[in-house]
C-alpha cells in the first residue's frame, strides 16, 4: 500500500522514470543481506521509506550500490559508513546510539527518573507540612472556648 502511494506520488509529481535494468540479484544469502541493509537506509526522495521498500528510481540506484558493495565483500559497518559519508546519519532510519544521539535514547529514561525523584521529594515533604501547618495556624484561645468546654462537661454528666 505504501509502495503504491509512493509510486503514485512520484508519477504525479515529476513524471515517470523508466524501469531500467538493475543489477542482477545476488545469491540468496547475500541478497537477503542486501535487503536487510536496504531496510535500514532511508530513501532520499520518499517520506520515511527505506530504499528496499521504495520503488523510486533513486532508491533503486542506492539499493544497487548496496548490492555492489555486498558483492565486493564489504562488511555491514563499511556499507553503512559509505552511505553516512555521502548522506550523513540522516540516511539511517534508526539513528546510532552513540554520541549526541545517546540523548535521544537516554533522555526519556532520564526524564522519567527526574520525575520520580520529584515525586519522592514532594511526598516526603508533604506530611511534615500538613502536621506543622495546623499547629502554626491554630487560633488563639478565645473566651468562647471556655464556654464550649463547660457545655461539653455538662453534657457528659
Amino acid at each position: 500500500m505504501t509502495a503504491l502511494a509512493v509510486a503514485l506520488s512520484l508519477v504525479l509529481s515529476q513524471g515517470y522514470a523508466p524501469q531500467r535494468q538493475g543489477l542482477d540479484p545476488l545469491e540468496a544469502e547475500k541478497e537477503a543481506r542486501v535487503m536487510r541493509l536496504g531496510k535500514q537506509l532511508r530513501c532520499a526522495v520518499c517520506q520515511g521509506v527505506s530504499i528496499a521498500d521504495s520503488p523510486a528510481s533513486m532508491a533503486r540506484a542506492q539499493l544497487d550500490k548496496v548490492r555492489e558493495l555486498v558483492a565486493e565483500g564489504k562488511s555491514d559497518e563499511q556499507i553503512n559508513a559509505y552511505f553516512i559519508e555521502r548522506y550523513g546519519e540522516w540516511v539511517l532510519l534508526e539513528p546510532t546510539k552513540g554520541g549526541l544521539n545517546a540523548v535521544l535514547w537516554v533522555g526519556p529514561l532520564a526524564l522519567l527518573g527526574v520525575g520520580l525523584l520529584v515525586i519522592v521529594l514532594q511526598s516526603r515533604r508533604r506530611p511534615a507540612a500538613l502536621v506543622t501547618a495546623p499547629a502554626e495556624a491554630a487560633p488563639a484561645p478565645s473566651p468562647d472556648d471556655a464556654l464550649l468546654a463547660q457545655v461539653r462537661a455538662d453534657l457528659e454528666k
Binding site: 535494468q21 532520499a44 526522495v45 528510481s57 540506484a61 544497487d64 550500490k65 555492489e68
Partner: peptide, 14 residues
Amino acid sequence: DPKSTVPVDYGVSG
C-alpha cells in the same frame, strides 16, 4: 550511467 553508481558516489538525492 546505466548502473546509476556515479550519482550515489556523489551523494545525489534526486
